[in-house]
Design a protein around this nucleic acid. Sequence first.
DNA 1: TATTGTTATACTCTATAACTATA
DNA 2: TATAGTTATAGAGTATAACAATA
Lengths: 157, 157
Amino acid sequence: MLDDLVVRILAEDGDAALRHVGLGMLLATAHNQSREGMNDELRPLDVDVRGLSMLLALDLYGPSSQRRLIDLSGIDKSTMVRIIDELEDGGLVRRERAPQDRRAYSITLTPEGERTLASARRVAVDVGERLFGWLRPDERDQLVGLLRRLAEHTAPR
Amino acid sequence: MLDDLVVRILAEDGDAALRHVGLGMLLATAHNQSREGMNDELRPLDVDVRGLSMLLALDLYGPSSQRRLIDLSGIDKSTMVRIIDELEDGGLVRRERAPQDRRAYSITLTPEGERTLASARRVAVDVGERLFGWLRPDERDQLVGLLRRLAEHTAPR
DNA sequence: TATTGTTATACTCTATAACTATA
DNA sequence: TATAGTTATAGAGTATAACAATA
C-alpha cells in the first residue's frame, strides 16, 4: 500500500509543485522497492544487481578492462574497484593483466562466474515476473519508453 | 545520454532476464537523476526533497507528532528525528510539547517555514517543469498510473 | 604528461537496537 | 507494559582526491 502522504499529494492534481513532488516520490518508491526485491533474491548467490550488471556486461562485451566497464556503465571508478573486488572475492571473475597495456586488467568471467550468471539470470526472470510481470506487454513498452525519455531529460546539465 | 550497457541490455528484447534488469536500471537512472536535480536547486533554501515533503505534510495535515509524520510517510523513526532536527536547526519548524501527551511533540511550521515552503514550491515547479514538463498531460497520467501500480506490486511481501 | 587502477575519505540515505521519559 | 522520541552505530550506495605503476 502506498503511504497516505503520497496519495494525498497526488490527489492535488491542480497543484504543479505537488504533481512534480508526487512523481518524484513514486519514482523513489518504485525504484527502491524493486531494487530491494531483486537484491533479496540475489543475496543467496552472493551478488547484487550491480554485480549482476557487470557479469552481464562481461558476457555481452567479453573480457574488458575496468576502464571499459566504467565507460559502458557510467559507474564511478572507485565504485568499480569495489564491485570487481567483490566479484573476484566470490571467484566469479579474474583480474588478468592485459598483455598490450600492463596498467590495465582484462577482467574475465571464470567458469563459476558463468554458472552464477546463469543462476542469477533465472532469479532475475522469476523476481522480474513478480515485480513487473503483471504489466501487459504494451504497458511495459510504454513504461520503458517513458522512463527512457525521462532518463534522457533528467540527465545532469 | 543513456549508457551503452543499458541500451544494449534493453536491445535484447527477447531475453526476459535482460528485460527485467533493464527496466530496473531505467528506474534507478530516472530516480537518481531527478532526485539530484531537485536537491541541487533546493540546496540554496537549505532543504532537500525529504525535508520539503515534511513541510508539505505539515501544511496539508496541520501540526503533527513525529509518530504521525512517520505513519503518514513510512519514513523510519530515527530518520524522522534527523529530518526534523535539520528543519528545526534551519528555523523552519518548532518542536512544542503536545499538551495532552507529554511524550509527544507537536511539530509546527514557523512563519519562516511557511516562507521557505512557498519558495520551495516555486523551485519544485521550475525544476519539475524541466524534469517532467516535456511529458504531454496524457503521458504524465500514464506514467503516474504505471508507477503507482508498480509501487503497489513491488511492496515488500 | 596522461591514463589505469587503488586507497583513503566522506557524504547521503536508511535501518537496528538500546536508551529516556512518559503513559 | 507499551509508546514517543533520542542516540549510537552500522550498512548500502556514491563521489572526490591523492597516489602508484605504466604508457
